[in-house]
């Protein structure tokens, strides 16, 4: 599958997929989407890239090892549970703050968002790890 057109398409599509996956992840709290779907999309982008070039190229493009994505993801998910403990609420209670950012309006940030980001990274990392390994074999 080392076709130039496919390679070109994969290279152009990768950033688009990534931005899209982040968007899907962020709006997931209110509309269809979320960490699982976003993670799957991001992974799909890289897998397409890996199929067009090869896995080494794709891993280079990823910059960090997929394993790091998993570690970061799980860490985010765990860290997101801590603020509730400090706030004296039961474990895993969602804690929210509202930021008013000029021009953008009100931005709501909460630990569930952080948790979902952890899910996003974990799913992304896991799928990339699995498929890259299988492809290399």
């Amino acid at each position: 599958m080392k076709s130039y057109i496919v390679q070109l398409a994969a290279a152009r599509l990768l950033p688009v997929t990534l931005i899209l996956s982040l968007l899907v992840f962020y709006r997931g709290h209110n509309e269809p989407g979320g960490g699982f779907i976003g993670g799957l999309m991001a992974a799909a982008g890289f897998i397409f890239y890996a199929m067009a070039f090869d896995t080494q190229e794709a891993e280079k493009k990823l910059r960090v090892s997929p394993l790091m994505l998993i570690v970061a993801g799980l860490s985010f998910a765990f860290i997101s549970t801590l603020p509730s403990l400090f706030a004296g609420n039961p474990f895993f209670t969602g804690e929210w703050i509202s930021l008013i950012i000029p021009l953008l309006g009100k931005l709501k940030l909460g630990t569930p968002l952080l948790f979902d980001f952890g899910v996003y990274l974990t799913v992304w990392g896991v799928i990339v790890t699995i498929i890259f390994n299988v492809m290399e074999e």
Binding site: V126, I127, I130, I131, N133, V134
Partner: peptide
């Protein structure tokens, strides 16, 4: 299910 399938495949 995806994870399990991948594991079984391997």
């Amino acid at each position: 299910g995806f994870g399990i399938t991948a594991f079984f495949l391997a």
